[in-house]
Design a protein around this nucleic acid. Structure first.
Lengths: 229, 229
DNA sequence: CGCTCGGTTGATGCACATCAAAGGCTGTGG
DNA sequence: CCACAGCCTTTGATGTGCATCAACCGAGCG
């Protein structure tokens, strides 16, 4: 229970729950529990019957789908404050369309699916905030599609810039610990190609990595790369 | 007014409005008007301030975004019964993120943005149906992303198969009139490459085109192509 | 001390894009 | 009625961005 109380406190700061009182959150989170995931631990797998949704509290999870070749494609990075699987839960009898895997130690507020149909659904304001969340996520997918024909460097630059949006102003080091492989899986390229591009950027001092944390030193340069051609 | 009445009748058959009475629809469509678009006519442009949303009545519209190169990328084909721009309208002060262009003569039920915030919003059931619509559309975008690394033939096959979903059972000729260029813009390839693949299929009797209407003669073959490698 | 994991580099090949040219078809204006 | 422009399709020749394969290094770890 104390973990849940802590989670409630954490959630009060999130924009998606703004305007909701502590007791309101207690209701929304009824029957919920905080789960902690180790690095690379699976929260749920594609094809599992969808029995819960929830909120990312700390760390991060990557949502990926297996491709025909067996290689996974990452469709979304879920960072703290992100609501996961809410849209799926809204539909009857569904399975998760993606696998959720922890990137580094992470914490997740796990809520029973029933909550959505009852308590969450009755909060119209919340429903619309979730719809907006879904809408912006779709916007990102569309933006990626637009870059389909663009050179790989632009895809990588675009990914890094979009991850920057989660950062507080001025902070240029991405919160998310990202391996080159994960970048490759996200933009649909091979690790080697991503490495070739990023080590070139490192040489030029545009970016700088340590311990999988990427620091975007010269954002103007990245923007320039996006405009190229 | 009579055109609007006709539109109401047409909409009564749509699953998204199921369970809503004629008078209910009259309310939802208050202030609406039926616009007819000629082939290639623009319904709205990317960047326009979003003043209306609506329902496709007949024909079809392609939703596309301009890429850096100037070439357009098609993000969605909207066919009859599809609700367009509802998610955008839900957010305050937004512009259209895509351009909508008629594919052949088409008809569109144009509704003032105010309706969404007032009448539509108060129908919880409708809101959730729209959310599901958004959710499945996002699912398609994700599926496309998974195919990023797949050979072009699979992307084209996947597109054709997904368009088949709109068809009544047994009907294998796509309702949507599609040019090779549109297919290319949708899967992120060049016209020539799409043509090379599809004319090979034509020779093999897998598909058959006339007047931009594509008939999928051997669906098993297409499924086989999707499973390959 | 072997193991896996993340990063890196070079050599080779292929699936596409790109460029070029041409023919049919439709609509439009002189 | 013809000329002309745009659009759609097609085919061939040529080039290239990136995947693939192969090998190697350092770091953490049981």
């Amino acid at each position: 229970m104390t973990a849940l109380d802590g989670a409630i406190t954490e959630c009060m700061g999130l924009s998606i729950f703004s305007g909701i009182s502590r007791t309101g959150l207690k209701e929304l989170f009824h029957g919920g529990q905080v789960v902690t995931s180790a690095h690379r631990e699976h929260l749920f797998e594609v094809g599992d019957s969808a029995s819960f949704f929830g909120v990312v509290l700390s760390g991060a999870y990557k949502l990926s789908k297996p491709s025909a070749v067996g290689e996974d494609v990452i469709v979304h990075f879920s960072t703290p404050g992100d609501v996961v699987a809410a849209f799926i839960i809204a539909m009857p009898n569904t399975v998760y369309p993606v696998t959720a895997i922890a990137m580094g130690p992470s914490r997740f507020l796990k809520l029973p699916r029933e909550n959505y149909g009852t308590i969450w659904k009755s909060n119209l304001d919340l429903i619309f905030k979730i719809q907006n969340l879904l809408s912006t996520r779709m916007g990102h997918l569309q933006d990626e599609k637009v870059l389909m024909k663009a050179p790989l460097s632009q895809k990588v630059a675009s990914l890094l810039m979009s991850l920057l949006e989660n950062n507080p102003d001025g902070e240029t080091t991405l919160r998310l610990p990202l391996t080159r492989k994960e970048i490759a899986d996200s933009v649909g390229a091979s690790v080697e190609s991503v490495i070739r591009i990023m080590s070139e950027w490192s040489k030029q001092g545009i970016i700088c990595t340590n311990e999988q944390h990427i620091n975007l030193l010269k954002i103007e340069k990245l923007i320039e790369i996006l405009r190229e051609h």
